[in-house]
Design a binder for these strands. Sequence first.
RNA 1: GCCCCCAUCGUCUAGAGGCCUAGGACAGCACCCUUUCAAGGUGCAGACAGGGAUUCGAAUUCCCUUGGGGGCGCCA
Length: 483
Amino acid sequence: MAPSPTGALHIGNARTALYNYLLARRTGGTYVLRIEDTARDRSRPEFEQTIFEGFRWLGIEWDEGPGIGGDYGPYRQSERVDLHREWLGKLIDRGWVYRCFCTPEELADARKRAQAEKRPPKYSGKCRNLSEAETQQRLDAGETAAYRFRVEPRIVEYRDLVLGDVREDAGLWGDFVICRSNWLPVYNFAVVIDDHTMEITDAVRGADHISNTFRQIVMYDALEIPPPRFGHLPLILNRKKQKISKRDGAVSVEEYMTQGYLPEAVRNFIVLLGWNPGDEREMFSLEELVDEYSLDRVSSANPIYDIDKLDWFNGVYMRGMAVGELAGRARPFVKAAGLNIDSSGNGYFEQAVALEQERVKKLTDFGDALAFFFQEQVDPDMKFLVRKRGTAEETASALQKVLGLVREYGVDDVGVSESYLRGLASELGWKAGELFMPIRVAITGSRATPPLFETMQVLGDERVISRLNRAIALLRGVPSVAS
RNA sequence: GCCCCCAUCGUCUAGAGGCCUAGGACAGCACCCUUUCAAGGUGCAGACAGGGAUUCGAAUUCCCUUGGGGGCGCCA
């Protein structure tokens, strides 16, 4: 895997990395991470860090690479330029390369003109046949010149690991730059040298590299070295069938982290974007993926990613998790939401999490879902506090009775609470729900909560009593008194 | 404009000539369960882009059209 540190870790790059990782693990190979930072102006070290963190979060560990080392370092392209220059020399010696004095401005102009006239924007070959003497003379005069690869007309073909046999006519290309006039190699050339010298056997990357691949093959041939196997993964598209961009919401792994997604869910979701096991299973642990994964089950059409499915995966993983584990993962998110969870008693947080476990989709949802457990008081909405089609006073007096029962029997035993509250409902001649809803709203402030008796049990006598008191006061229009 | 890749429900996909009146999952809808919300259960709806060709027979093979994506940098 060879990401460029020019931005956050994109979901598409994460998928490519995952596929590479699975492939390496499955075949007992070595997974190599190389940083492609030859664009010195766009590459930033902090992006490198985010990318590493993203990989690790997803459980993708590399065998060789920055921070780990290995026998084929260095693992940053920018640290390998001496090697690139050395191989450039071989190409020069064999007559595959010439100096080009055209300035970037000239080239951009030519390109623009070609576009306007609907001609293919191909290099004119202006400097291709400059004599050695003239080249030397202009160099001596202080002109700068890039190195261009001399493309000979031919059909380039190879067998793609996912696409099958593909071919392109190199006669259509025009000579391309492989080394800038400042002596820094261009990515496409550096990749060839790096893949070869690092003994890369399989290069699996995004389909946007297909046309690079043809050019790379031509360079391999010129150098008389064997190319690796290539595989190209269809690009992930957004709902509008465009390449995903920042405007599409969460596209970086970092965003999924902060939005409360579980790495196992994200991983499971992205692995299925273009791959399937051939049967109807769709929940996979990393280990299972390593066992099952194969490139020939990768589809060749562009998938569109649908966040709803990710939400579903996330919910499934959250529900399947042990409460203690889930509570641990939720903790930082709940704190970030401003809930004071540290001062509450032993196990209170875990109990609350347990009650909400099957009601949330993301870790961030706990902030809202758990709020009433930790607030000093809740603010019941009068509209829902009063019994349906009933009066405030009538509801207040019912809650007064509830209060009496709670004081007498407590809320510790779910079965006991249920029986005395159901008893009260029938005594009042109310349907159970008509009594339960006002209680629910009184003690939680919300209409959507976990089951009432369990909720009361976790809240405990003290909170329940105080909240009932407040609700009664509210219903009767008297200022609330702390109890 | 030129080149390359691709094309099954809204989305992810199964399907490699008869097992297909096209299967599963998400989303949607309905019902059940139920003290609310979820979760769960059951069911409904929903696709082979179009046209040719090959074949006894095509979602599956071939061609064309259309549509989508990618590339055409002294970016990666």
